[in-house]
Design a protein around this nucleic acid. Structure first.
Lengths: 125, 125
DNA sequence: GGAAGTAGTTTCGCTATGGAAAGTTGCGTT
DNA sequence: AACGCAACTTTCCATAGCGAAACTACTTCC
């Protein structure tokens, strides 16, 4: 490959900073179970670990634990240890986590139109 | 792990189908260079392979080639072979590809508020 | 004939992601 | 003392994603 002296485009329509912000959003929602987990908590309210495990078909303890920790680190999910016997833990979306509903809804809508677009062009050929 | 008889939630607030649609959107935009590539084409119009290679700092020929093929398969990018000597190829967003601008913008906005949220809480502690 | 430019593909290797299964800890019940 | 249950963690393994570098194919310029 050639040596590339970085080209500073005169067409600077998106700042680097804003590009990274969009990529951050993707990063937060990436991972096989994130969207499903967020929508489950958005619909079901506060749920226990084992409850989520039974609701989300196919997920295992390791991935559920990891995905919950990811969301917690991003302040999207709150972990509440209940003083029951035996101890149970409830997970719920934070107010910040609930702001994801809007963008996930947008993704849902775009995904549906995309599907129609692709199926449509596929039928043409 | 326990045997899990799949639980059909009475809290059925999101249909499976719609969940998958949102995940499709993530899938289309996943990959290290997708967002940057789409915004580059959205801003720069029709660009040659080598032009993109020089604009997007850090990308290599293999990944650029692959990411362009991914987008083309999803009908988001059109590949135009120009009858120049030597042959050049121009890539540009399709009308469908341009519909991504809206959702990427939403991601950009959410990403910025998310950054403030996380930095804010971090400063608290 | 050799260098250089466009547009890729191929190979090798590393790291990240994700799954299955078993192990851990701390209670409470029988 | 043994079993059960919640909530995890750990280990092992397979696949996927990504990058650097080299290689291919074609053409034009010197």
């Amino acid at each position: 490959m050639r040596k590339k002296e970085p080209v500073t485009l005169d067409i600077t329509c998106t700042k680097d900073d804003e590009l990274i912000a969009a990529m951050d959003t993707i990063a937060v929602l990436s991972g096989k179970w994130k969207i499903q987990l967020i929508t489950t908590l958005n619909c079901g309210g506060a749920l226990q670990f084992m409850e989520i495990l039974r609701i989300i078909d196919g997920i295992g303890t390791k991935m559920l634990s990891k995905e919950l920790q990811d969301l917690e680190a991003n302040l999207l999910v709150k972990r509440n240890v209940m003083e029951t016997r035996p101890v149970t833990v409830k997970y719920e979306l934070t107010p910040h986590g609930r702001t994801l509903e809007r963008i996930i809804n947008e993704m849902r809508i775009w995904g549906l139109t995309h599907r129609k677009e692709v199926i449509g062009k596929f039928a043409e050929s």
